[in-house]
Design a protein around this nucleic acid. Structure first.
Lengths: 189, 189
DNA sequence: GTCTATACGCAGATAGAC
DNA sequence: GTCTATCTGCGTATAGAC
């Protein structure tokens, strides 16, 4: 296990992650990633053999990040209700990127679906991590398993919708407004 | 104005529209469209000079279709409330396509945004047609201009979110469930 | 490990015969 | 109008020198 190679690999993954988000997967070439990292295309292939390989690594990296974030919320934020608010506030915090590039999860899933990409199911897992975590929170609030699932899907729906509409109309103030509606809804159930 | 050429042009546009929706704009090549229509690539260029030209024609065609649909609703459905329900029911009616390819408007806008495509603003106009129509309906229901805009944006947000989540989890029953919630909301305001 | 050189196919786009 | 032939650039991917 070479530390230097691992560092370079991580650098490539995080750069590819960023470019896939901002430019889309299909529209981002090996050259784009290689030049952004500052290595040659040939060197790039030493680390990743195919474009699907680098995509798989990016998705895996995101899943680790999402899991870490959720674990931190579970650990540091006392109540389930506050944690759900924290989730909603997250999209408010990312508003600048959202109006420019949309939701990092939703847009990549939507794109991969149309490409019939082999990594599509892994991409969906990223969203499922959030959904399952939400279900847990609603169950902790005393709701039934069925209700909790419906609530989680509804919350997911609203946040995804907010990102799509905010991006379309380049309206970041709108994110804040809809987030408040969503937090009122969370308090009402 | 040649009728035969016009017919072929329309055939190309509707085929391209379908392929852009199912495969995405970037991922659909001239060859894809030409072979689906049943003409050679060379012939294709007689009708459209660049890929942005065919995209512009597709978007224009959609805008005409959307405008026609909204006009028909205005004409044939008596009350604004029923018309808004009709909009929500539309996504239920399209559920089979939505779980497979997402929203025809949302997915193309999201993709064009990342490609920094020159037709992006025209694509957004498609969504704006729905938004402006919704605002009219809410105003007819007696709401203020400001409230009506917020309501329209909220309705748009929910329907867009539903398509993203339904596509991600390939869950068409979910569309019906969230549509009912949405119609309850429409009745409550 | 990192590089240059290069193969190969496909995409967008053009020219010109019929 | 529709076709075939062709150009050009880019994207993925490989080989092999250093």
């Amino acid at each position: 296990m070479n530390t230097k190679a691992e560092t370079m690999r991580n650098k490539i993954v995080s750069t590819a992650d960023d470019l896939f988000y901002r430019q889309g997967f299909n529209h981002t070439s090996f050259s784009d990633i290689a030049s952004a990292v500052g290595i040659s295309r040939g060197n790039f292939y030493y680390h990743f053999k195919t474009k699907d390989d680098i995509l798989a690594a990016v998705i895996e990296n995101r899943k680790v990040g999402i899991t870490q974030t959720l674990n931190e919320w579970n650990k540091n934020t006392p109540t389930p209700k506050e944690r759900l608010h924290q989730y909603v506030d997250m999209i408010v915090g990312y508003q600048d990127n959202i109006v420019k590039y949309g939701c990092p999860l939703g847009t990549v899933c939507s794109e991969l679906n149309k490409l019939e990409n082999i990594n599509y199911n892994d991409a969906i897992d990223m969203i499922a991590l959030f959904r399952d975590w939400m279900i847990e929170q609603f169950i902790l609030l005393g709701h039934s398993a069925e209700k909790s699932k419906d609530f989680a899907m509804h919350l997911l729906t609203c946040t995804q919708g907010i990102t799509v509409v905010a991006q379309a109309f380049t309206d970041s103030a709108f994110i804040k407004r809809e987030a408040d509606i969503l937090k009122d809804w969370l308090d009402s159930i």
